[in-house]
């Protein structure tokens, strides 16, 4: 081999590599910004996750997809025996490819809503076992699911769907209205949140007896709504405000003026 030629090739590539940085740099920064796993906080991350990501390259998504299918196949057996396996698979899928929110949400739903039912059923089913036992199964599964979703938040700090999912689990599995209201509020305040999040927050407050709080929330909300957008349901919100005013006995002159 011609060593001189090889040295020339390396030197040329080195110079070109430096010269193209102005073209490549901004693009790379932007791409990395969009791709959490390429952000290297420190060297250990780089050599751990970074290498895996680099090696899997474009195939990470496929590997995760295939594992997700496997997860679904296991989950379809619908019995407590497969709970550890399913949970492990969900964690594996979300570790390999944390980017699709879909994996996090559906994994959490399997854990919170399906697995809790399997456990109750195998212990003797609803109605046959003490309420405390049902409570315990529901709570345990809900907590696991919420832990998963809290990890999802680290990867997707700007996605309201995750907070709404957490809120729902608090509400429907743990009957913890306080927490549910809180998470709906955080979700509602985020950009891109669905309009119903804000309404549900108020509704939960009302159910909890926090009429004043619900009333203030809705009044503020009303100003931000667009009458032309059916999803905003501006009239319905006004109706709720009126109901709360009745409940709170607000004097006529102090009532909300749209």
């Amino acid at each position: 081999m011609n060593w001189k030629a090889l040295v020339v090739i390396f030197v040329v590539l080195f110079v070109v590599g430096l010269a193209v940085r102005p073209v490549e740099g901004p693009a790379w920064d932007e791409l990395r910004e969009r791709e959490p796993s390429l952000r290297l906080a420190d060297l250990e991350d780089a050599l751990g996750q970074g290498v895996t990501v680099g090696l899997l390259g474009g195939f990470r998504a496929i590997v995760a997809d295939l594992l997700w299918i496997r997860t679904n196949v296991i989950w379809e057996q619908q019995e407590t025996a497969v709970i550890p396996a399913t949970e492990t698979m969900i964690r594996l899928v979300t570790t390999i490819d944390p980017r699709p929110v879909y994996f996090w949400l559906n994994g959490a739903r399997m854990i919170a809503y399906d697995m809790s039912v399997w456990r109750v059923r195998e212990a003797g089913d609803y109605g046959n076992i003490p309420d405390a036992a049902v409570r315990r199964y529901h709570d345990e599964q809900a907590e696991t699911a919420i832990r998963l979703l809290e990890r999802a938040r680290e990867f997707h700090p700007d996605r309201p769907e995750i907070l709404i999912e957490i809120a729902n689990i608090y509400l429907r599995r743990m009957e913890n209205e306080e927490k549910a209201a809180e998470y709906y509020r955080i979700a509602a305040e985020m950009e891109g949140a669905p309009p119903y999040a804000a309404r549900i927050h108020a509704e939960i407050l009302r159910r909890m007896g926090e009429y004043e709080q619900a009333y203030e929330w809705l009044k503020e909300l009303y100003a931000t709504l667009d009458p032309g957008n059916p999803a905003h349901q501006k009239q319905v919100v006004l109706g709720r405000i009126r109901e709360l005013e009745d409940t709170l006995d607000v004097p006529l002159i102090q009532r909300f003026q749209p």
Binding site: F10, L13, F14, G17, L18, V23, E24, P26, A27, W28, E30, L31, R34, E35, L38, G54, G57, G58, R60, A61, R99, P100
Partner: peptide, 29 residues
């Protein structure tokens, strides 16, 4: 890092599959 080109820069498929669009300037670069 200077000698070898950065092939990770071409790895935009996952973004597209996740429904994120690629801005014009990024594509051009």
């Amino acid at each position: 890092s200077a000698v070898f080109p950065n092939f990770q820069l071409f790895n935009i498929g996952d973004q597209i599959a996740l429904g994120e669009s690629i801005p014009f300037e990024l594509g051009a670069r």
